[in-house]
Write a protein that binds this DNA or RNA. Sequence first.
DNA 1: TACGATGTTCGATTGTGGTCGAACACGTCA
DNA 2: TGACGTGTTCGACCACAATCGAACATCGTA
Lengths: 117, 117
Amino acid sequence: MKEFEHPSFETIKLSDVLSALGDPIRLAIMAKLHASDQETGWGSFEVAVGKATLSHHMKTLRMSGLIRHRKEGTRCFVAIRPELNDVYPGLLDSVLRASLRDQAMQNKARENLVAAQ
Amino acid sequence: MKEFEHPSFETIKLSDVLSALGDPIRLAIMAKLHASDQETGWGSFEVAVGKATLSHHMKTLRMSGLIRHRKEGTRCFVAIRPELNDVYPGLLDSVLRASLRDQAMQNKARENLVAAQ
DNA sequence: TACGATGTTCGATTGTGGTCGAACACGTCA
DNA sequence: TGACGTGTTCGACCACAATCGAACATCGTA
């Protein structure tokens, strides 16, 4: 059973972390992980992309230090890497808090769009 | 004198803000703006790109709601948009605090690289 | 008015990133 | 062992972003 590579934070640039968070799908994954607050199986992510693409996003999140990626049998489980908060204190928290607000804003914008028709 | 377009935050997605911050050059610009803590003229940014590219980055920052872009005579001045902190409280602060730490880490990594030779 | 300084816009190039289907690897279970 | 489920890797495609030089617009000034 091959283990995944989890780079140390000394090799990770902040701009890579932010780029990783800059994709809507990856941001949604992080938001879900934060909401559930525990290790989460792959199947739980209802994303509108194929498994190859999802795998790609997971690798991106892993390589930028955002998630820990563990294999158990044939399935994968991911969780937020807790050390991230030691390296960049409060960063992920404020991003995910912002994400909640963003989701609310986007929903509202959608409603207004529907109401306008 | 044509004014610049500054989109309202209702039309801006968080992922766009984070993507904008995900580019090293733009992140450096934001860090410099935060460090100087005031409106800053274009000439102060010592970036390793041509003026066309810099203009492009400034537009990206402006369109993602991060900066205010003002023209005075033939020169341009930019500043961090204060409303950003109302929409996403603490977000930019923690990013820029992380940026300081990141710069320190990158410098250290460079020193180690030099020392190893 | 003509010139120089400062940014913007345009067109082209190049690189990177997201996406997919198909093939593959690995573990589980009958 | 063979079939199935779960993810990864590969190859290709496409969209977009970063970059540059050149042309343009605008303002200040000689």
